[in-house]
Amino acid sequence: MTTTPARLRSASGAGPRAAISEKTLRTDRWWLQPLLVFLGLGAFVVYGLVRAIMNKYYWASAEHYLAPFYSPCLTKSCVEGSSHFLGQPIPQLPSWLSPAMIILVLPGGFRLTCYYYRKAYYRSFWLSPPACAVPDGHKTYSGETRFPLIFQNIHRYFFYAAILVGSVLTYDAVLAWHGKDGGVGMGLGTLILAVNAVLIWAYTLGCHSCRNIIGGRLKHFSKHPVRYRAWGLVSKLNAKHQQFAWASLFSVIIADAYVMAVSAEWITDFRFFN
């Protein structure tokens, strides 16, 4: 058996690199993608902040729509009817702290530590690097080896939380089938909430952590045929993780904005029936 070999000599001592004065010789529009991502994620963050501070228009009582940003609503300050089976375990909050801020930590953390979003914001916000073969412009670089970025490893915890969040959003989507006059009913909001729930699940279950837990960590697939199949399914979702990340990001904004508009009575919900 071999032992871990020590380093022979400094790897960098071999000589200078080619003296090319241009920082990058890329001729394509390599800056376009990071720019778009910057704008997209920036817009989401701004919207999220505004909505979280707003602290109203999140419950459309007649239609039984709960805005995803405020779901579940866990504090005593939640408007009547907006809290569901989880109750209101958290006491009255100071007025500057909305119920959204409490709950957004979970999906926010999940996305913040997500392997796809990490790529996206390291590139477009931190410029590390902005694009392939374009210098990252930082003096030193230690990656995710130390504080604070070593905390990216808690993605696993957020994944478990995200399963709860996904379940609650599913519950919300089911509640939205509540008819205006009691019984079963369906409006455009019902559809939007349902689509949103599906996309959130597709994003959550396609997560790299999930892929590892469900089967990726196994050494012998052949001994665990069921988990191997599950791993295969998750791998398919995982291959589209980037697309689902964006789709669910937009769907959650759309769903939230729609509920807000209905709740604030800026628009009336389009009802398919009841």
Partner: peptide, 16 residues
Amino acid sequence: EQGLGYCNITKCCTEV
């Protein structure tokens, strides 16, 4: 030993 933590998964390796 290999410095896996240095990788910030910006995926350029996969791209090229």
